[in-house]
Computed example of a mutant assay.
Amino acid sequence: MQARAARTRQALLRAAALEFDRHGYTATSMTQVCKVAGITTGALTFHFGTKGELADAVQDHGCQTIRAAVDRVKTAPRPALDLMVDLTICLARLLEDDACVRCAARLTRERPGAAPGWMACWLPTIRELAHRAQRSGQLSAGTPPAAVASLATCLLLGTEVRTRAALQAERAPDGAGQLQELWGLALKGMGLDRKG
């Protein structure tokens, strides 16, 4: 019985992530989520009393995936600047491949303050890595860590927008590849020393 309930919950989370990601919070109906999941409305309301509770659960699931990736990347034995670049590229791949992650990003914009935002899952680590890069001498003199963290944030947010546009146009997104190229240009242009 518990295994069946867990499978039903997972099916609802997957279906809701797809629907919220495609149509947004306001345009997604509980009926459509049930249809996509192949589950009755009664089963949905057993697990999630409201659309808000369902959206919170999807956003939380996406944020758990992001936090796991952040923890994995930030502990690798590489210089801090490389880890920052690696982290943004890892997150770009998650945006391409995981509807829950994309959904967490979209729901953060559409429901500010409703649940922990997706940026809260990675931005503190980006800032920490920028400061570590400065302390280790990876940043050239006069390059503020806050500006490097802002650059990383802007590149990642732009990657999310480009990924969503490619998917909506039914094209394969290459946000991670484009992000790698942009990092190369940005670091070279700022005279940053990317070792490793």
Rank of each mutant, 00 (worst) to 15 (best):
S150F: 09
P116I: 00
G184W: 00
W183F: 10
A80G: 07
V101P: 03
W122Q: 00
G42M: 09
H47F: 03
G42F: 10
G42C: 11
D56Q: 12
A149N: 04
A105T: 14
A176I: 01
C90W: 02
T40S: 15
E181D: 12
L139K: 10
Q180V: 03
M190C: 06
C100T: 12
R93K: 11
T26L: 14
Q134I: 08
T28P: 04
A105H: 14
G191V: 09
L54C: 02
A99H: 05
Q64S: 12
A3N: 10
A133Q: 04
A115F: 07
L12G: 06
R194I: 08
R22V: 11
K188N: 09
A3D: 08
V36Y: 03
P79I: 07
D86Y: 04
G62H: 06
A17G: 05
E96L: 09
T28V: 09
R72W: 13
H23F: 15
R67F: 04
L54A: 02
G196T: 13
P124L: 06
D71E: 13
M30G: 07
K195E: 12
A80K: 00
R109Q: 12
L139W: 06
L95E: 01
D98Y: 07
R135V: 13
V58Q: 05
H47D: 00
K51E: 02
L192T: 06
V73S: 00
A68V: 12
G113Y: 09
A37W: 01
A92D: 04
G184F: 00
A69Q: 03
L139Y: 09
R4G: 09
Q64P: 01
A17R: 02
T125H: 12
A57V: 06
A133H: 02
A105N: 14
A6N: 15
R162A: 15
A176R: 03
M1H: 05
A149C: 08
R132Y: 08
R93L: 06
L107V: 09
T65C: 13
A6L: 15
P116V: 02
A5H: 04
K195Q: 15
L81E: 01
R109P: 01
V85I: 12
R22P: 05
I66G: 00
T153H: 11
Q178I: 04
K195C: 13
G24Q: 04
H61F: 11
R93Q: 10
K35Y: 09
E96R: 10
C90L: 05
A165P: 04
K195W: 10
M119T: 10
I39S: 04
A169I: 08
T41A: 14
S150T: 15
F46C: 01
R194W: 06
D71S: 11
T163C: 12
L179F: 09
Q138T: 13
Q168A: 15
A146Q: 10
G52D: 13
I126G: 03
V73I: 12
A57S: 12
